[in-house]
């Protein structure tokens, strides 16, 4: 009985079913709504994080991670969900760290990331539409280069790896660590913005 309650579209192999597509669209509406409310329909607001002027990106992102993280741990501890029925991406350290560095550069260069560019596009930002075109081109370049770079894409493979496993602690302790880092980032970013404002005043 409990297994029935904790199954997901993913665990049943039904992510392509009509029900899953409708659910995904509804989840997307909420996703886009909160992104826009946070100010992510504006590229100036987004890149301000990298010029240490406005840390909304960091606060919204880490705020979301901490919220979901706590929810996941509480539901899992209560037996209300079975994380084995959830899609967990494998770790490939080398391409993921390299991609992150590139992504950060592309983010400040182009002013958007894929999800926020969609919100920007419907807010009237022509630069967001051009960015999405560029992202499509970048995806095609990757597909074209894939045969040549395929060995690199699995460098540093750790399988499905979690922070608690790497550190040899319980998931709760690892979650607490991420929360502490997020809180430190919130406090530190506020101090940094105040310090910069004083210096440029």
């Amino acid at each position: 009985m409990s297994t029935l309650a904790t199954t997901t579209f993913f665990s049943e192999g039904l992510l392509g079913s009509q029900g899953a597509l409708v659910a995904a669209a509804a989840i997307g509406v909420a996703f886009g709504f909160f992104l826009e409310k946070g100010g992510f329909g504006s590229s100036k607001k987004l890149v301000a994080v990298f010029y240490m002027r406005d840390f909304a990106v960091l606060k919204v992102m880490f705020g979301a991670v901490v919220t979901a993280l706590i929810g996941i741990r509480v539901l899992a501890a209560a037996g209300a969900v079975d994380l084995g029925n959830w899609y967990q991406m494998e770790t490939f350290l080398v391409p993921q760290i390299g991609a992150g560095l590139l992504f950060g550069m592309g983010f400040v260069m182009g002013g958007w990331c894929p999800g926020t560019a969609v919100v920007g596009a419907v807010s009237g930002r022509w630069d967001a539409i051009v960015f999405l075109g560029g992202a499509g081109i970048g995806s095609l370049i990757y597909a074209g280069a894939y045969p040549a770079i395929e060995p690199l894409t699995s460098e540093g493979a750790l399988g499905v790896s979690t922070l608690d496993g790497v550190l040899g602690v319980s998931p709760g302790v690892a979650a607490l660590l991420v929360i502490v880092v997020a809180l430190g980032a919130f406090i530190g970013s506020n101090r940094l913005v105040a310090w910069r404002a004083r210096r440029t005043a």
Binding site: G100, M105, V108, W112, A135, G136, G138, S139, I141
Partner: peptide, 9 residues
């Protein structure tokens, strides 16, 4: 920037 982000993603 879009092309870099698309590739990196």
């Amino acid at each position: 920037g879009g092309a870099v982000v698309g590739f990196a993603s």
